[in-house]
Write a protein that binds this DNA or RNA. Structure first.
Lengths: 251, 251
DNA sequence: CAGTGGTCTAGACCACTGA
DNA sequence: CAGTGGTCTAGACCACTGA
């Protein structure tokens, strides 16, 4: 038996498949086009379906494919650029920042949240839930934690519909002295997954932002974006459009 | 047959397992501690090894576990905070920015790189390769593309050892007018994977940064960080330490 | 209800590590 | 060389979609 590429004999089958499929996608498929089904593709490449699926998973993770149960696998459009921490000096909840409020509650701060906010566990915190949509797609969800102490002027008796707007309005009365963000990889919890139209465990980019007013932390936001379809942009613009995929080929 | 939780009967087994393991890690294990091997764990939970592995993969993706072939699975330490785009107005290659140069070459710009740089394909570009280490761990790799036109004062005949330092030095002579970054999920190519001590296809956070001098793009950097072990920080500090894992529990 | 992707099994064998 | 995680197979069945 001879192999055509003895030097790459070590390469896992699924990784090689990924490359082959990736090239084929670029050459022979249009965005939105539907691929042959998995059983068909596996047979065509002479591998088990599980192996084929490993390759597809990679490509989906990289934003090249989109798979939907009961429907099929399609070629994904380029990732959506989502601007994060857009204009310095801006509190969350500006009028047209792309977010839509879906709920708000007041409760005692769990330990981890309290720690991030620099308050005692159990102190009262407003929890504003928001979703971000681009076109008609939900690309991100967010939980914004605002200590009750940050918004002392908040009226008492608020209707559920008035709660979130009031909290955000009060927040804007504070002078924002700075904000820091961190980005890391996570997996979608059941609730987020449903809102993002993904299965639980889907890879997400988690952005944690701390908003400061004076020396204190006035609020903390935890935002969750679909990792397969989003590219998070920081700084003045988001125009850079070299993807990892293309850059790697170039190297 | 009755299930103890009829309302969660729909939950995939591997997802439930992930949760159970995650709780067990927090309660019964120390950072660095080694877990029972996969065959043992699968037997203990009464699932196939493949199913157990799906749960472990999730936890590794989330930075909770570290798996090494031939060694075992250990509880991972908290993610390393890596500062990205640290001080505004700073070119890459400052003296102590955590990067170490590992090579430099000059070649014709491939199409994608040329486009990002705003130059014609085939124009000459210096390609500086660097790695970033924290402690003795390589957490990131980078390719910095600098058009030859950006560094006109570069001496001719340079020894390989002098090439990269000279390019970075020339770059610092330009006035930096701004920089934009984008973060997205990718998978490690063979070369990056080796440097990051991961297998090909490992999830990485890809940061693409465009450095501007005047209206032109003076350089583009593509940095690749281990997604399992890194948390990328933007802005003044990186002190926010709510992880997705903990925030989700709190919600 | 046909067709799709998602989950799960039981098993074999390979690549790698460190004693 | 024993023990670990990584790869791969062949198959069954489930959940979901849209005609």
């Amino acid at each position: 038996m001879t192999t055509t590429r003895p030097e790459t004999a070590q390469e896992p089958k699924y990784w090689h498949l990924r490359t082959v499929l990736d090239d084929a996608l670029e050459r022979e498929f249009e965005v939105g086009e539907i691929l042959p089904n998995e059983r068909e593709l596996a047979a065509r490449f002479g591998v088990a379906r599980a192996t084929l699926r490993q390759a597809l998973e990679q490509l989906e993770l990289e934003g090249r494919l989109q798979r939907r149960r009961g429907v099929g696998t399609t070629v994904a459009p380029p990732r959506t650029a989502v601007s994060v921490a857009p204009s310095p000096g801006t509190w969350p909840g500006a009028d047209h920042d792309g977010w839509r409020t879906v709920g708000c509650a007041e409760a005692a701060a769990p330990a981890q949240v309290a720690e991030a906010l620099g308050i005692a566990a159990g102190e009262s915190v407003h929890t504003v839930r928001r979703v971000r949509t681009v076109g008609d797609r939900t690309v991100g969800t967010e939980i914004l934690y605002v200590p009750a102490a940050s918004v002392p002027g908040l009226p008492r008796a608020l209707s559920p519909a008035e709660h979130a707007p009031a909290v955000l309005r009060e927040l804007r009365l504070l002078e924002l002295s700075g904000a820091e963000s961190a980005v890391e990889l996570g997996s979608a919890r059941a609730e987020d997954a449903k809102q993002l139209d993904r299965l639980p465990g889907a890879p997400v980019l988690v952005v944690t932002t701390r908003y400061r007013a004076g020396a204190a932390t006035a609020a903390v936001a935890v935002s969750t974006y679909r990792a397969d379809t989003c590219r998070l942009t920081f700084g003045d613009g988001g125009a850079v459009d070299i993807t990892h995929h293309e850059a790697a080929r170039a190297s």
